[in-house]
Amino acid sequence: MSDQSFRISAGEALTAEKITEAGEKPSEAVATYAVRLGDDALILAQRLGWWIARAPELEEDVALGNIALDQLGHARSFLSYAALAWGKTEDDLAYFRDEPEFTNLQIVEQPNGDFAATIARQFIVSYYQFELYRRLVDSTNATLAAIAAKAVKEVDYHRDHATQWVLRLALGTEESRRRMIAGLGVMWPYVDEMFRDDDLVESLGDAAVLPSSLREDFDAVTGAVLAEAELEVPEGFVARGGGREGIHTEFFGPLIAEMQVLARAHPEATW
């Protein structure tokens, strides 16, 4: 599978501002779907943002910051679009929803842990997002397709970054290998949830991408990297999941409390 064949030109990439300006109101079902993808990206960006000024090398401060910034950009586009369905803004959705109203996958809210755990999470999510976005570019919903067209190019680099680190850590030193295996062990239970279909995605037809349809490719490409890294695909415990229904792990409450604290202290303010 050549990376090059999947690089899709973004053309006139949509930004959050342009989406709001266009004001094209999505159906409630499309909006609910867009919130899911937006929440995945937002919460991951929130987690990654913590690393800036704490990474193992300056180059990684820049790289993780870049990935966080890309994810935040995707989140803003999806949430800005979704918000139009309810006459709201991206910030209403990000700052004034409570925990059960967030519908991100549980993997993105998992704590950063050490660098290996962060890389394990990033490896899994980047491959998942890549498979998702490269199909979503064909969505019958033009806005979702345009957001995906921009996102897939960026996520392709995230995939590459995570892959390089999985190889380095797995095949580097005994210590790094031990940590990489531990990191994958912590994150892998949340993989299963990513590929579950439900009534919403089924009702959307060709506007959305069925999560179950991504699994085969995800397993093949991640499996190839893990094999090169001389790692086993972790087996065993599967987390119950439920992120898409607003069920979260214990780590989520503090995460959004921190994210929302200032905006909620000044509900009438703009920034």
Binding site: A16, L42, A45, Q46, G49, W50, I52, A53, L58, D61, V62, G65, N66, A68, L69, L72, G73, A75, R76, L79, E90, D91, A94, Y95, E258, M259, V261, L262, A263, H266, A269, T270, W271
Partner: peptide
Amino acid sequence: ITRAPSLKRKAILMAKVQDEA
């Protein structure tokens, strides 16, 4: 970065700190 009061400000701040690196 984790507490920026709007998503736009969060993006600008992240980009700024990254510029500094």
